[in-house]
Design a protein around this nucleic acid. Structure first.
Length: 255
DNA sequence: GTCCAGGGTCCCA
DNA sequence: TGGGACCCTGGA
C-alpha cells in the first residue's frame, strides 16, 4: 500500500468535479483506472492510501501532483466574493496530472455531450479496445493506446460524429505534443478542449477552459478572466463545481 | 412519446 | 465573424 500526504484533498470533489471520467465510488473510497493502472484510493487523516496493481509511489505522487502546495493556492484572496464562496465549497479539489492521450481522447468525446454519456462512451472504448486487468477479483480495462485503436471500427463505442476526430487524433498523436498549437492541429480539438488538456494533462494551472457553464458564470459575475492569475484553472474548477453541484441543488430545492 | 440540451468544433458564407 | 449541423441520449 502506498501512502501520500495530502491533508487538504477531498476525494469526492477531486474525482467528481469533471476533470476525469473513470473513477467510481466504492466501499468508502474510490476505484479507478489511470492508463493501465487500477487503484483503490481512500483518505485516512492527512494521508491518502492507494492499493494498486502498480505500486509505483512516484507515479501516483505525480498523478496527484503531490508536490504542489495547495495551502498557498487556497491562501490567495480574490476580489470577487462568489469566487471566495465557491472556493470554500470546493477547496478539497486537486487538479490531477493525467496521461496526455487519455485526456485528449476523453475531452474530444466530451464536446457537445453530457457527462453520463461521456462516461458511457469512454467505458465502451476501454472495454472493447483496452487490456483486461484483474484486480482484487474484479475485471477492469486499461485506456487503449493510439496503437491499440489504429484501424479499428469505432462505431461500436457510439461516439457519433466524434469518431472521425478520434481517428484523426490516432493518426497525429505522439508523446512529444506539448503546446496548444500542436493540439489545435488535431480535428475535434478547439480552444476549450485544448485548454482542458493543458490544465489536466500538462498541469498548466493557469489554463482557464471556457465551457458553457463557465461562460455563463463569467457573464453573470462579470469576471475578468485575465486577472485570475497563475491558478485560473483551479478557480475555474471551483466555479464549475460550485455552480453544477451546489447552486443547481439549491435551485432545485427552491423550485 | 416528444422535446431540449449537453464541460464544442467544423464548415461555409 | 456568425450561425447551422452534428450522433446520440439523459432528463424533463
Amino acid at each position: 500500500m502506498i501512502k501520500i500526504k495530502l491533508p487538504l484533498i477531498n476525494l469526492d470533489d477531486t474525482f467528481d468535479c469533471g476533470q476525469c471520467f473513470r473513477w467510481q465510488k466504492a466501499d468508502g473510497g474510490w476505484v479507478g483506472v489511470v492508463g493501465g493502472r487500477v487503484a483503490k484510493v481512500t483518505k485516512n487523516g492527512e494521508y491518502i492510501q492507494i492499493i494498486s496493481n502498480d505500486e509505483d509511489t512516484k507515479a501516483w505522487e505525480e498523478y496527484f501532483d503531490a508536490e504542489r502546495d495547495y495551502q498557498e493556492i487556497l491562501g490567495i484572496e480574490y476580489a470577487n466574493e462568489v469566487i471566495e464562496v465557491a472556493k470554500e465549497k470546493a477547496k478539497g479539489i486537486r487538479i490531477l496530472k493525467q496521461p496526455l492521450w487519455e485526456v485528449l481522447i476523453s475531452f474530444i468525446i466530451s464536446q457537445n455531450n453530457n457527462i453520463p454519456r461521456i462516461k458511457k462512451i469512454i467505458n465502451l472504448l476501454c472495454e472493447n479496445f483496452g487490456d483486461k486487468i484483474d484486480f482484487e477479483g474484479n475485471i477492469y480495462y486499461s485506456f487503449p493506446t493510439a496503437f491499440q485503436l489504429a484501424g479499428k471500427d469505432l462505431s461500436i463505442i457510439k461516439a457519433g460524429f466524434r469518431d472521425k476526430y478520434i481517428k484523426d487524433a490516432i493518426q497525429k498523436f505522439n508523446d512529444k505534443i506539448s503546446t496548444k498549437e500542436e493540439l489545435l492541429e488535431i480535428k475535434g480539438i478547439g480552444e476549450k478542449v485544448a485548454d482542458c488538456i493543458r490544465l489536466f494533462a500538462f498541469n498548466d494551472l493557469s489554463s482557464f477552459p471556457l465551457d458553457v457553464w463557465t461562460k455563463r458564470i463569467v457573464g453573470e459575475l462579470n469576471l475578468d478572466m485575465g486577472k485570475l492569475g497563475l491558478y485560473a484553472g483551479v478557480v475555474q474548477q471551483w466555479l464549475y463545481h460550485y455552480y453544477r453541484n451546489i447552486k443547481n441543488q439549491e435551485a432545485q430545492k427552491v423550485g
